[in-house]
């Protein structure tokens, strides 16, 4: 089991290295270099070409390609991602704050989405072909049919504008920094994200549960005289959860992408809004910083999925 996980971690590092290299190439081929970023337009105009060349040499920008690559990689590994012109701040500093804000949304959405999706998926499977099943089965189709941003706008319009119950955007009110205020701001975006995730999971959980319920060990379990509850939860549920773990893992990049859009609609100060601003401001280093964070997140979440699956299935865990 440990060698398996170690191998996964090693693969993760390779993927990360490839991503970093691609990012470096992107930065290198983009017009302008670090010096252009550091100097304002006026300052650059006041310098002679010779002075500019001297400054470039100072920063190591005139070196051969592999050496530049090495210098850049070393900086990135030590957490120095460069300077963002659009945010007028150190990129690593900007990312620290925004990644935290986005993580808050995504983790809440995962938490509620998984609970809601798995719960209703099981309910639908147990009540197969009754009206309960049909209702639970049709809502996800309805939700999957509406794009996330329309759902968001719909919620903003009804809940915030018409009913005036919850704020429509940002993380905090101007005058209120309390936790309760934060929660109020989170409800709408988290609802959208968890509904979209739950809609997917309901279908998978139901199918997986039905599959397990028709397997022979369920009949065998019933033949033991244990209660129906025990058959459902101790025998069927534990097995039905295995494919659901994989599905959550597979959908994580999609969930992150969904968060980017949802954040923008709700003006949540996270990675999504940041990416939109950086792209708008043609801030290439900032965009690349975001790419690195997303890559690291996806790699880590795949690793977590693998470990979770390994722990849940003794056939994998013990070989």
């Amino acid at each position: 089991m440990f060698t398996q996980i170690l191998r996964r971690i090693a693969t993760g590092f390779v993927v990360l290295w490839v991503t970093l290299t691609v990012v470096f190439l992107g930065l290198d081929f983009a017009p302008g270099d670090e010096l252009d970023v550091l100097l304002s337009a006026e300052a650059a105009a006041s310098l002679t070409p010779d002075e500019m060349a001297a400054k470039r040499a100072e920063l190591g920008l005139d070196r051969a390609f592999p050496i530049k690559y090495g210098i850049w990689l070393k900086k990135v590994v030590t957490g120095d991602l460069g300077y963002s012109t659009s945010e007028d701040n150190d990129i690593a500093e900007v990312l620290k704050v925004t990644v935290g804000n986005t993580a808050m949304l995504i983790f809440s959405a995962l938490f509620f989405g998984i609970i809601i999706g798995v719960f209703f998926g099981i309910l639908a499977a147990i009540k197969e072909n009754t009206w309960v099943d049909y209702v639970i089965g049709s809502i996800p189709i309805f939700i999957a049919g509406i794009p996330g941003f329309i759902l968001s706008l719909g919620l903003i319009y009804t809940v915030s504008v018409k009913m005036n119950l919850l704020p429509s955007g940002y993380m905090h009110s101007l005058t209120d920094e309390s936790f309760l205020d934060l929660v109020k701001h989170m409800i709408l975006p988290v609802s959208v994200l968890s509904l979209v995730l739950a809609a997917q999971l309901v279908r998978y959980t139901r199918a997986s549960m039905l599959d397990v319920l028709s397997s022979e060990f369920i009949i065998a379990a019933k033949a033991k005289g244990i209660s129906n509850r025990r058959v459902t939860y101790n025998h069927a549920f534990k097995n039905a959860l295995l494919p659901v773990i994989s599905v959550v893992g597979l959908h994580l990049p999609e969930i992150i992408a969904g968060a980017v859009i949802t954040e923008t609609v709700f003006t949540w100060p996270g990675m999504g809004s940041l990416a939109v601003r950086a792209a708008g401001g043609r801030d290439v280093p900032m965009v690349m910083g975001i790419v690195i964070v997303v890559a690291v997140t996806v790699i880590i979440s795949n690793l977590i999925t693998d470990i979770a699956y390994t722990l849940a299935d003794p056939r994998v865990r013990l070989g």
Partner: peptide, 13 residues
């Protein structure tokens, strides 16, 4: 049952 592998629950000891 016929097939002890499929009639035992794989995730329980």
């Amino acid at each position: 049952f016929q097939d002890p592998l499929s009639s035992l629950n794989p995730v329980l000891t």
